[in-house]
Design a binder for these strands. Structure first.
Lengths: 115, 115
DNA sequence: TTAATATGCAACCATTGGGTTGCGTATGGT
DNA sequence: ACCATACGCAACCCAATGGTTGCATATTAA
């Protein structure tokens, strides 16, 4: 375990952030979050994009492990996959904490220097 | 405030995620985090990239507000900017919580349906 | 059976992105 | 004064991305 000590593990968060780094995909995530699993056609409604555009974005999210889709009859239902979100979340948590620590160290140095 | 209620605010997180969505930039953030403010030349050492490459990545991070640089003598010192990290962190927090809520609702529906 | 719905696949296009090289310039050290 | 260091700017290149259209296919409904 101890994923917060493994730099390689940390770098693997990049694809997750990359997948979230697009306004359209963020909206998709939000919609899947708020309204639960949906078909592509339904996800397309309300966006200025083509169904194919949405499909591509869903694939990107799926490749990052943020989302999963399976065929149900003639439609394919897509839903959120929480684990990867948690990975990203933990990464930011770690960075924030490290940054806090660095800030404190810096602060101490400054105070020492001016004392 | 209540940034967690403002969809427009939420979408504005996309550039932050996009900036973090690259392995090289994640490493830069980690290095700035661990070893504090550094010059471009120093940040370049240890990477297979050119100084210009690093400079470009720093600009991307800066445009996302994650990092800030200022000229000190003949070198330019770059350091982390924590607030944007917190924004991203809060976004993931929100999504996670919404997702939890959706999961619970779904769970209830399933249980009702099979009861 | 026929029509409408929901999707997948492939080609294509324009733009962005990651990365380099070359060159010019300011700063620091000797 | 001179040289090395640290940097910025601009041009350039190739690959990836965001987005479209056209067409083929499976499924549901009438």
């Amino acid at each position: 375990m101890t994923p917060d000590r493994d730099p390689a593990r940390l770098e693997s968060s990049a694809p997750i952030f990359a997948a979230l780094g697009d306004a359209t995909r963020l909206k998709l995530v939000a919609r899947l979050c708020q309204s639960g699993p949906q078909s592509i056609a339904r996800l397309t409604r309300g966006t200025p994009l083509t169904r194919q555009g949405i499909t591509k974005h869903l694939r990107v999210l799926a490749d990052a492990g943020l989302v999963r889709g399976r065929r149900l009859g003639r439609e394919s239902r897509w839903e959120l996959e929480p684990q990867q979100l948690i990975v990203a979340h933990r990464y930011l948590d770690l960075i924030s904490k490290r940054w806090d620590a660095a800030l404190r160290r810096l602060q101490e140095l400054v105070e020492e220097g001016s004392a």
